[in-house]
């Protein structure tokens, strides 16, 4: 059970308080109707799934309830950093 730093609570808490929420920085297009099927597919389904550094989202579901972003190494599972939603990609 990994430990996760919630950037809102500023505390490191056990994984059981959190819900993983997929890859980060995939913003919903402002006007989806202008997207081609291929662009929409990319938004919906295509994921980086990297072996290594991964920008991903978590929610402190059983804490403050906030969604936030993180950089984690998917090989070691170690977090590099976590940061608030809306902050630029790290």
């Amino acid at each position: 059970m990994i430990l996760i730093h919630c950037p809102y609570c500023d505390e490191k808490r056990p994984e059981l308080e959190f819900t993983y929420a997929g890859e980060a920085h995939i913003a919903r297009p402002a006007d989806p109707s202008t997207l081609s099927d291929e662009e929409w597919e990319r938004y919906l389904f295509i994921r980086a799934n990297p072996k290594g550094r991964h920008n991903e989202r978590w929610r402190h579901s059983f804490g403050c309830g906030r969604f936030f972003n993180a950089v984690r190494d998917t090989v070691t599972d170690k977090f590099e950093t976590t940061y608030k939603a809306g902050e630029p990609r790290k």
Partner: peptide
């Protein structure tokens, strides 16, 4: 909550 917090804050 996801949409509210992350898409339409």
């Amino acid at each position: 909550e996801d949409y509210l917090q992350t898409e339409w804050p």
